[in-house]
């Protein structure tokens, strides 16, 4: 696969200023996404994955702001963009889908109005022509009788249908990149898998790259080519989905996988990682996972560098798992 780079993030740091000083929700993140790539970002609530998504969209609100690092989108550094430049980019070349479809749409405007404005914000096009595009987009995301739905208000649609509308809006301007922040979490399991399948198909058809943010490793495994695992504002491990799932190298990744219900024998208590995320105001000096890690020693009191287990499979851990196995395989 020869894919050209689309998004390149280096050393991104997003801080929120508080009375007790700045807190870094995203702390030195490096990411590369190629055109048509599907990247999954996995982490618990509070790990900074949503803030990372918002940082890429330039939507971090005060008191938060991007304080360091570089976000290059299609070769252009967007970190210094003006609000007007962001407007041209958002919804046009980068689209974002949020977690809760019930609140993503304005309750007092018709679906059609909310879709057409997304087109007219970026293209000089008549409402009639926009209506045609919007109709087709509705059909593409699997909504029958689009005219009826377009005239409806959000509360008249089911949660699954609303999320389809939101996805249709994200796809309207054929963006190069879609950031989906847990778009299926609020939906029930059957609808979830349908949407997941549709999303994968739609992105493949349109050639859009996709960042799928989720707390659910199982969901990410179904859709992503590559996975990045986030913990306390840092990416602790990233690699190709299959390899990462087969041989997780960071103890946190391994813990996440062990705690998936599908990986536990029936009738046994589910495995969980002891402890909780460290407070941003009280981060461990070295590896932020060390306090919860069974393998931690004094060596973990220094922030671990990124090391590569195999090409494209990086981990931030002093004592990664499976290194021996990986080395053996390579030899």
């Amino acid at each position: 696969m020869t894919r050209t780079g689309l998004l390149s993030i280096q050393g991104l740091r997003t801080e929120f200023s508080t009375p007790d000083g700045p807190l870094a929700a995203v702390n030195g993140v490096d990411l590369e996404i190629a055109r048509g790539d599907v990247l999954g970002i996995v982490g618990e609530s509070g790990s900074g994955k949503t803030v990372l998504g918002l940082s890429i969209m330039g939507l971090v609100d005060r008191p938060g702001r991007v304080t360091a690092g570089r976000i290059a989108f299609d070769g252009t550094d967007v970190t210094a963009f003006s609000e007007a430049q962001w407007q041209g980019l958002r919804g046009n070349r980068i689209a974002m889908i949020f977690q809760d479809p019930t609140t993503s749409l304005n309750p007092v405007q018709r679906i059609g109005t909310q879709m057409i404005e997304a087109i007219q914000a970026h293209r000089d096009i008549s409402s009639g022509a926009a209506w045609q595009i919007v109709r087709e987009a509705m059909v593409r995301v699997g909504i029958n009788s689009p005219d009826e739905r377009l005239a409806a208000y959000p509360h008249q649609l089911s949660g699954g249908m609303r999320q389809r509308v939101v996805i249709a809006i994200a796809l309207l301007n054929e963006p190069d990149l879609i950031i989906a922040d847990e778009p299926t979490t609020a939906l029930d399991v059957t609808v979830q898998s349908q949407i997941l399948r549709d999303m994968r198909r739609l992105c493949r058809d349109s050639g859009s790259a996709l960042i799928w943010i989720s707390h659910d490793l199982g969901v990410v495994a179904q859709i992503a080519h590559r996975v990045a695992v986030m913990y306390a504002g840092r990416i602790v491990e990233q690699g190709a989905t299959m390899e990462l799932l087969k041989s997780p190298s960071h103890p946190y990744t391994a813990g996440l996988m062990a705690s998936m219900p599908a990986n536990s024998p029936r009738g046994q208590r589910l495995v969980s990682i002891p402890g909780g995320l460290p407070q941003l105001s009280n981060m461990p000096k070295g590896c932020s996972f060390a306090p919860r890690c069974t393998r931690a020693t004094e060596a973990c009191e220094v922030p671990p560098d990124l090391s590569f287990i195999s090409p494209g499979h990086g981990v931030r851990c002093v004592f990664p798992l499976h290194v021996g196995a990986a080395l053996a395989e390579r030899n």
Binding site: L59, W86, Q87, R90, A95, F98, S104, N106, T113, V166
Partner: peptide, 21 residues
């Protein structure tokens, strides 16, 4: 609210967000 953030993610101008949403 989320729909305002989504409206911004759509790339709408601030004027449109205030008047229409």
């Amino acid at each position: 609210l989320d729909f305002i953030r989504f409206a911004r993610a759509k790339g709408l101008a601030p004027r449109r967000i205030v008047l229409a949403h």
